[in-house]
Every structure is written in structure tokens, then in C-alpha cells.
Design a protein around this nucleic acid. Sequence first.
DNA 1: GGCGTTTCTCAGCGAATTCACAGATTGCCG
DNA 2: CGGCAATCTGTGAATTCGCTGAGAAACGCC
Lengths: 245, 245
Amino acid sequence: MTTLSPQGRTELLRPDGSPVRVLVVDDEQSITELLSMALRYEGWQIRSAENGQDAVRAAREFRPDAVVLDMMLPDLDGLAVLSRLRRELPDVPVLFLTAKDAVEDRIAGLTAGGDDYVTKPFSLEEVVARVRGLIRRSGAADRRPESVLVVGDLTLDEDSHEVTRGGDSIHLTATEFELLRYLMRNPRRVLSKAQILDRVWSYDFGGQANVVELYISYLRRKIDAGREPMIHTRRGAGYMIKPAA
Amino acid sequence: MTTLSPQGRTELLRPDGSPVRVLVVDDEQSITELLSMALRYEGWQIRSAENGQDAVRAAREFRPDAVVLDMMLPDLDGLAVLSRLRRELPDVPVLFLTAKDAVEDRIAGLTAGGDDYVTKPFSLEEVVARVRGLIRRSGAADRRPESVLVVGDLTLDEDSHEVTRGGDSIHLTATEFELLRYLMRNPRRVLSKAQILDRVWSYDFGGQANVVELYISYLRRKIDAGREPMIHTRRGAGYMIKPAA
DNA sequence: GGCGTTTCTCAGCGAATTCACAGATTGCCG
DNA sequence: CGGCAATCTGTGAATTCGCTGAGAAACGCC
């Protein structure tokens, strides 16, 4: 079953029609708030916990369909939390948050089944995409939404990372891909440069605000070149993508 | 009967249409969790036990179609557990887990029937493949799914370990084979280096992340050499295999 | 024990990507 | 028609990323 989210998109629902539930575990409150907001915006129900104890308790009563888990918590270490979570919810997929340099040795082996991880600092777009992927693949949602976004004659496949316009394959860099994904997930909606920056770039990005303009320019060269433009500037407001027609 | 797993692949089912059941027996909880997760992801139903007593009890009521059994348990030794398991479930195939230096001849005798074994530390891809093989050969599943993966003109036989491209036989080392199998089980899907590392290398691998690049390079030399390439790099995202056409 | 094979580390190269900066361009206002 | 602010884009530099050769270490086989 699907329904319309506040954004007018189809969203994931559980078999009984209730919204998907996601548990966010991180000791930094700024992070849990950031994530909760972003994930709530997807139409999901969010609960957050700031330490391992809370996390296990929350898991027990909240029974989330997915968990976002920081691997370094103050009380229990991430592995211990994971192990207790698994005892409560053997099947729940987990998205691990980890420092970039801790990746190889600590996480290796953890993402056994359908799990996944992202390194800090992450971009919200990335976290949301991964959580969506986890839920989709876990089968908690009763429908397997297409992994392909379509706007007009433009398509973007989130699995294969392939992008086409009017049938022509288009090569994008990683950043361009994320930007386009964000736009395409919000067609006919004006997104401000600030929103885009928050969403597509890492949360600790300290650079010039005009990277967004720059990347919009790159995208236009690649997807709008010589065609009816799909990316539109709303001067003073932001950018919007919509079908050419 | 077959159906689509969450990943969209065909999966094994029992004759009555219920999912295949696998019992995992190991005293290290981190191992049972790792295995449970990976095997669950195949769409199978998993029960785990941490000692011989539990194992026998679980076998009795859970009636698994296959068992993964660590040969060194704290209470009963592996052989004793095995013999009691056999009394409960005479026909169930067993995958033994054993330390590398353990008496290989004793195990060799045990795997005389349809059984099999892997040494610790193992890679998940290997364990999953072996369990799948056991179940397939035991006839618990009502259909024998093809053991041959095909992507374009590239074929990989999981039983005979034969690999061909355009009819030409290709020799791969063990690691190369596992890497290619993982790629071919996920065609047209970008797999990150981290995912590949987790899945194809042993769970205790602590080495450099660029082994993945290295082995991709080896594979390319063997299967893409002088042909239309099938292995593609998505810079900043990972690798993907797809038909040349 | 010795030899060939396989796995893995290390380091350097080259290319792709990201980003800052600055000048050109555009749209909007009076 | 100016003038201002916002946006666009060319240039280039720094950095990251991926590829691969060389060789060391581990393994397996006789």
C-alpha cells in the first residue's frame, strides 16, 4: 500500500498501513535532531536514543523497521548495542554511522546481511537514501518501490546509478548524482540553495555557497544541453526541476 | 516453487512453500549474529544456538533444512552434538565450521555424505554459497535452481566453479571467484568497496582497502581483457557488473 | 624442504573530481 | 536606460580516487 506524503510523493508503508518506524541512536543531540528531522520529512515515524541503554529499551517498545546507529556511544560500545538490538529485533536492518578512519577494522563484517554504513560527516541525502534502501530491501514495506526516479524523459536509477535523458546515457560525478537525485525526489518544488547545501553536502562543509550554483551549472551542461531545459532558476528562491513539456 | 526475495532474486523454498530453515550453532555470539544476518538476507528462516544442548533442542522443534555447526563448543564437543543431531534429523546436511589447524582428516570423514565444511575465519559469501549448495543438493527445496549465474556472455557455475566468457574458459583464483560471484549475484547494482570487503573477505580481515581495487584489476585482466568491458567503476560509489551490450 | 601459486602491502602515476576565485551575464528595479 | 544584486561559468589549482607494477609473505602441493 502506498499513500501520498506531505511532499506529494509515494512513500513506504508497512503492510498494515502504518508508517515505517526508524530508531536513531547517537549521543550527540545535534546529530539526532538533524537526522530525525530529515527522516521525519520522509513521512517516517522517528524515535531517538542517546545511549545504548535507551536504544535497547526503545527498540523493545518502539519496534522500529530500521535503526540508524552511531558506533561510538558513551556507555556501551557500538558492538554491544548492536548485539542487544539483534536480540530484541533479529531482522531489523541497521545503518551504521562511523568516523571515516575507523571504517576498515571495526565495521568490516558488520554489514553482513542487508546492513549498510556511512562515514561521518555524512550528507542527509545520503543517509536518507540508504535508510530507504534498507527498508525497501528488508521487505518491511509491502511494496517494492522502483529504484528508478523518473521526471519527464529524465531517469535516475538509484541501484545502478545510471542516468538517462531521452534514452541517452549521461555520466555524472558522485556529487552531481546526489544533487540530481535530490532535485528529482522533489520535482516541481523550489529548493533553496541552503536546503540543497544542507542536504547534498556534508554537514560540516565550510566552503563557498556558490558550489551549488557551480554544480547546477554542471548538471545543466549534462542534462539540459541542447534540449528543452528541465532545471529552472527561481531567482532569489532557489532551483526546481520539472518535465520539459 | 520459487519466489522473489527482497533483492529480486529467485530463492529457495520448501515444497510446501514455506521458507527454508537453517540452524546456526556457535558459542561466539558475534559469529551467530553475523551468520544469522547473512543467511536471513537470503530469505531463509534462522534459529541460533550457543551450545550443544540448545542445538539439539532447537533441532527437535525447529526442524531445520540445514545446520551450520561450529566444531568446538564449550559443553559437548562437535562430534557429540553431531551424533545427537543426526538422531533427531538423520538427513539434514551440515556445514561444519572449524579452525584452520584443526584435524582436517577427521572432518574429511564427516563430510562423506552431503556435508561440507569451511575454516575460520570465513567469508560470508563462502558460507552462504555452501549452505545454498547443501540445501540445493539435499532436495529440501523442491526445485533445483540453476547453479549457473549468467550475465551477458559471462557465466559462472557455482557447483563446478567454472567460469566462461563468450565460450572461453577462464581460470580464476579462489578470491577472484568469490568476488566475481558476488558481483554477478548483484548485476547492474553498484556495490561499494566496503560492501565487497565485508562480503568477500574474511570477517577478521584487517588489511588495506585497496585489495578490492587490486582484485577488480585482476578480474578485468581475465574477463574483460580485449573485450567489451563488463566491470564498471562508479568513481566515489563502487563497482558494478552488467552485460557488455 | 622446496617450488609454484596466491594473497596482500606499498608506493607512484595519472586522471577525475572538487572547489575557489573572478569576470561575464542576466534579471529586476526605478 | 542605468545600476545593483543574483546567478552563471571559465580557468586553474589542490586534492582525492583508482589503477597497477614490484615484491614480500603466506599457502599448498609434492
